[in-house]
Amino acid sequence: MTSAFASSTAILTAIIPIAVPLLLSSHLSAAGLVAALAISTTIVDVSPFSTNCAIVGLGPALAWGVLVLPGAF
Rank of each mutant, 00 (worst) to 15 (best):
M1F: 10
M1I: 10
T2S: 12
T2N: 11
A4W: 08
A4N: 10
F5Q: 10
A6Y: 12
A6E: 09
A6F: 15
A6T: 13
S8F: 10
T9H: 10
A10P: 01
A10N: 12
I11V: 14
T13L: 15
A14V: 14
P17C: 06
I18L: 15
V20E: 05
V20Y: 07
P21H: 00
L23E: 00
S26W: 00
H27A: 14
L28P: 02
L28N: 01
S29T: 07
A31R: 02
G32L: 06
V34C: 08
A35M: 07
A36S: 15
L37C: 12
A38C: 07
S40T: 15
V44R: 14
D45H: 09
V46T: 08
V46C: 04
V46E: 08
S47N: 14
S47Y: 07
S47R: 12
P48L: 10
F49Q: 09
F49V: 08
S50N: 09
S50R: 02
S50I: 06
C53R: 14
A54I: 15
I55R: 11
V56M: 13
G57E: 05
L58W: 11
L58R: 07
L58M: 13
G59Q: 01
G59D: 02
A61P: 03
A63Y: 05
W64D: 04
V68S: 04
V68Y: 04
L69I: 15
L69P: 02
P70D: 05
G71E: 01
G71Y: 05
